[in-house]
């Protein structure tokens, strides 16, 4: 507990120092605000209309969470099919590994054509960018069951479904959470990309509109909100992880031996 406090204080210290250096540097070298506004100007911009920023942030957050949730549900379902069926593994999994190297951002305009300009195409892009991390890590996790334990399940006459539920799923959780930590950040990227392509709402829209007006302070304010959101989402997953897998090696506590 004391140690994590210590770590938090250190991180906060570094952050404050970075902002101070930024402020002093911009003033000392008389950098034009249009190039790099001082943090004081960025904060002033945010606090001039915090409700407006949070409204757009809320939209982006919902798109991100929707895309992420879709990626987890469909990604895990796909991973189960891949692990349970030799045919699916040979066909779909190979395809997925290949498709993962395609720059998903390039597909974004297509979704606008297909799904219109509402939230759907943004959710679709957030999903598409996030889902690969989920599938790949979920497959890895579902396959990580030690062979002895699979033998034991068979010897106990456990059916496929029971084995999946009682053995493979819990065994996959550490790996799945690693994938979800990556995927939540990717979903946020996807949401912003979607808003770049076409939107009247969200932080991606705020950034794009402010850029059009050379309002650099506003761009920075939006980026700052995004950064806070990204870190908070990551912490959320890390917190869920601690709740879900208290048994994992990271939580190890030694008891005295009898």
């Amino acid at each position: 507990m004391g140690r994590s406090w210590h770590g938090g204080a250190m991180a906060a210290g570094v952050l404050v120092a970075a902002f101070a250096a930024w402020e002093i540097g911009v003033r000392a070298f008389r950098v034009k605000p249009i190039v790099l506004p001082p943090p004081s100007a960025v904060f002033a911009e945010f606090f001039s209309a915090p409700g407006w920023y949070l409204g757009h942030a809320w939209y982006t957050l919902l798109v991100t969470l929707a895309g992420f949730a879709l990626a987890v549900v469909l990604g895990v379902a796909l991973a189960v099919l891949i692990v349970e069926s030799r045919l699916m593994e040979k066909s779909v999994y190979a395809l997925i590994i290949g498709l993962n190297s395609v720059p998903k951002v390039a597909v974004a305009p297509l979704f606008v054509i297909w799904l219109g300009t509402d939230a759907e195409p943004k959710i679709a892009i957030a999903f598409l960018i996030a889902v690969f991390a989920i599938v790949i890590d979920a497959v890895l996790g579902l396959k990580s069951v030690p062979p002895d334990i699979l033998d034991l399940a068979r010897a106990l006459r456990g059916g496929r479904l029971a084995t999946l539920w009682r053995i493979r799923f819990p065994c996959a959780l550490p790996s799945l959470f690693a994938g979800m930590k990556v995927a939540i950040s990717l979903a946020l990227v996807g949401a912003i990309v979607g808003e770049f392509v076409s939107s009247q709402r969200g932080l991606g829209y705020v950034i794009l509109a402010a850029q059009g007006n050379f309002d650099t302070a506003r761009v920075f304010a939006a980026i700052l909100v995004l950064a806070v959101m990204g870190v908070a989402l990551f912490w959320l997953i890390a917190w869920l992880e601690r709740l879900a897998i208290p048994w994992h090696a990271s939580q190890k506590v030694h008891l005295p031996t009898p």
């Binding site: 002895d148 033998d151 006459r157």
Partner: peptide, 19 residues
């Protein structure tokens, strides 16, 4: 196939880490 009423013990204990 695995008969009913079988108990098995392996070299590595095969315990479930999450239980």
């Amino acid at each position: 196939g695995p008969p009913e009423g079988l108990g098995m013990v392996f070299q590595r204990d095969a315990l479930l880490d999450w239980r």
